[in-house]
Design a protein around this nucleic acid. Structure first.
Lengths: 236, 236
DNA sequence: ATAACAGAACTGGTCTGACCAGATTTCATT
DNA sequence: AATGAAATCTGGTCAGACCAGTTCTGTTAT
């Protein structure tokens, strides 16, 4: 019993994927290692081969394992071949705790992606864009008290994603979504560190700069915020 | 020869996913539309319900559809909620042809990601790194004649990914892999446009700059290359 | 002793049909 | 008209059967 009482039952596949992810990411299994065959594993875990196959397929999509058809499944050199979904898996496993390396990496990318979005949006923003951003920012302020930590993090994520959407560069939006889970973990930490009021004030400062079409200003505010966050992380 | 000779038979699931992807991306189906139930579709297409389920699952992973459990499957507002895998799907559907918007978007991101990798690598590169880069570049040159278009594109992709790996910023590598398919499409076009010799010479120029620890130089060469490519694209 | 080669014993890949449980609709009862 | 139980939808899961390559193994011919 229990301990991890999940109201919604966890499927065999989900359990299997988590176990394998943990074993691989923790270093218990090393790149190149051969994994048990689908049949073996199915028998050992008392589940169907189809389930194991589906699980291996998912791990393969993340880049954690390398499936050689009709031959075997091997642990992949995932830091070479994996994709960003691995980050999301890492975050979920470690319960929203981010290592420093992951944090700085993600922030570097965020600066690149969102910085570009800010600059583009400042060039093309309409009055409607400004009104819309003000409206959703107001909504965040109004519901901040009764919103949970995760929900608030989600709202901040959506606010920044909106910048990408409004910028018209749809690639940036797709990228933001790809890094969703890891972003949420970041925002939870951020909001704990700086507090809600400070964070919302910052959103409004961004809106002012966009309204003034000050792309460089918005970029610099973003860059400065990231630097500051990393500096505080160092001093912890 | 050839064109589309696929030796490996295409599975029902693959066919189904492609059809749905095409219908959604082409605008034949619109965000919010309810899709047929798994059973309906299975009967209509003469395949098993599990196959349809698995297909819907894949589409959901890409962010193309929104699965409401026990309720129905709906076309998602994918430009808002989709992730980068959608790009890969777009590329595959259009037979490696890239729209201008996708191309510029991807190149913007590449500049951000690889530019950072070049700068970092110039700071920390060892003699071994240089020797390794020279070796794999030599291999590309030696095999360029007998390699197919796609294989060569893959090798160029791997070369640039190697920059990310050697830079030590593993997040950048993960990002590169996430955009793999779309990058291959880019490199195929690039190699057609500039020719193999020019492209390989350029790799060697990069190595010289890394050896000289000239991070700015490498960044500028990358930026200039991208600008030039986009300019030529305009004039086509 | 060694090389070549059938065939047995693996491997992952695909698909069907059955069953589960939550969501939704229908329709008789109040 | 409002209520609520039951029928009928929905996606979610799973086991087992079959397919087709790959790899190992033991025999045979040199």
């Amino acid at each position: 019993m229990n301990g991890a009482d999940k109201p919604s039952r966890i499927s065999h596949k989900e359990l299997f994927v988590r176990k394998m992810t943990r074993d691989i990411l923790s270093g218990k299994l090393n790149p190149g290692d051969r994994l048990p065959s689908e049949r073996e594993l199915a028998a050992e875990l008392g589940i169907g081969k189809t389930v194991v196959h589906s699980g291996y397929e998912k791990l393969s999509n993340m880049g954690l394992v390398d499936i050689k058809p009709k031959s075997g499944v091997f642990v992949a050199d995932y830091m070479k071949t994996g994709n960003i979904e691995i980050l999301n898996a890492i975050v979920q496993l470690s319960g929203n705790e981010l290592s420093r390396e992951v944090t700085t990496g993600i922030l570097d990318l965020r600066l690149a992606v969102e910085g570009m979005a800010f600059r583009e949006l400042c060039l093309r923003r309409s009055e409607e864009d400004i009104a819309y951003l003000k409206r959703i920012t107001g909504e965040i302020r109004n519901t901040a008290d009764r919103a949970g930590e995760d929900e608030l993090a989600e709202r901040f994520f959506q606010w920044h994603r909106e910048i990408c959407i409004l910028s018209g560069k749809s690639i940036l939006t797709l990228f933001m979504n790809t890094a969703h889970d890891v972003s949420i973990a970041f925002w939870v930490n951020y909001l704990r560190m700086y507090g809600i009021t400070f964070a919302i004030d910052r959103l409004e400062r961004f809106i002012e700069l966009i309204e003034a079409r000050d792309g460089e200003g918005a970029y610099n505010l973003l860059a400065k915020g990231i630097d500051d966050y990393l500096a505080r992380l160092e001093n912890e």
